[in-house]
């Protein structure tokens, strides 16, 4: 097989400029969706009226539709919407902001589910113990329950990150100059498509593996107090008030 190696080196050099763009999209989406995901997960767990329906609907919608459809909707609706609000300036917006929006919206849905199941793995006894040493429910949540939930969520957060990295390769549709976009232009210019995409493939592999290593290290660092979760009692630890859920109980 005759690959044009000179061209591949050239693409490698140009496409590397897209790496920060890809990373930026992933990081911004993660950072913004993280707290919102926790909030949404809590809304689901505590079955907040109306809101929980909204969150459920949102998660199902995002999970059930291709990211490409989400991109096309946001990229077609948002500019004209902004145009109505801020006028012509809307068309001068750097498209990367649209990418931030799409991927954040997408990550929120995934992380909501991730945090929901993670919070449910924390035993309700942890909340009770916090209350009985005199801490407020809120204090117990922040200091005891959330840290434990986050650590048990790490593998799934890693998965979400991987999906984000891979999905970000579609940012070129919004004319964001990420790795894929650069490779595409180079390829079309020289008509060496395969070479260009092979190079990009390697870049994505490197980025994904790097992310996996980071999460592996995080997991190992935090695993010092992980034990196999023996008995999880679902989300019964929920007493934000003294009102107790009428769920599982033991008596003797």
């Amino acid at each position: 097989m005759s690959l044009n190696t000179d061209f591949m080196v050239k693409v490698a050099q140009t496409a590397i400029q897209g790496v920060p763009v890809t990373l930026q999209i992933v990081l911004v989406a993660l950072v913004i969706s993280f707290p919102i995901g926790i909030l949404f997960a809590l809304i689901r767990i505590y079955r907040v009226k109306v809101l929980q329906r909204v969150v459920q609907f949102y998660v199902s919608l995002v999970r059930g539709t291709p990211i490409i459809a989400q991109i096309l909707i946001v990229y077609s609706a948002l500019p004209s919407l902004l145009n109505m609000i801020i006028g012509r300036a809307a068309f001068a917006i750097n498209p990367i902001y649209y990418a931030y929006i799409v991927f954040t919206l997408n990550a929120i849905a995934t992380l909501t589910e991730v945090f929901r199941s993670a919070l449910q793995t924390v035993d309700k006894g942890q909340m009770e113990a916090g209350l009985m040493v005199g801490m407020q429910p809120r204090q117990t949540f922040w200091r005891i329950i959330l840290p434990q939930a986050l650590i048990s969520a790490l593998p799934n957060i890693a998965n979400t990150t991987l999906y984000l990295i891979k999905n970000s390769s579609l940012a070129f549709i919004m004319s964001v100059k990420d790795i894929t976009a650069i490779a595409k232009t180079e390829a079309a210019f020289n008509y060496n498509f395969l070479e260009a995409y092979l190079v990009v493939w390697v870049y994505y592999l490197i980025i994904c593996y790097a992310a996996e290593v980071v999460f592996y290290l995080l997991e190992r660092y935090f695993s010092k107090y992980r034990r196999p979760i023996k008995k999880t009692s679902g989300f019964n630890w929920l007493p934000f008030r003294i009102k107790q859920p009428k769920l599982e109980r033991k008596q003797s």
């Binding site: 035993d123 006894g125 942890q126 009770e128 113990a129 916090g130 009985m132 040493v133 005199g134 801490m135 407020q136 204090q139 200091r143 005891i144 840290p147 434990q148 650590i151 107090y225 034990r227 033991k250």
Partner: peptide, 25 residues
């Protein structure tokens, strides 16, 4: 309160389990 299942804070050391309530509450 001493629980049947101990309910120690899993993310805190033995010492921190005791200081937690003192410091926070």
């Amino acid at each position: 309160f001493v629980f049947q299942n101990y309910n120690l804070f899993n993310n805190k050391t033995a010492l921190q389990n005791i200081t937690e309530g003192l410091i926070v509450a």
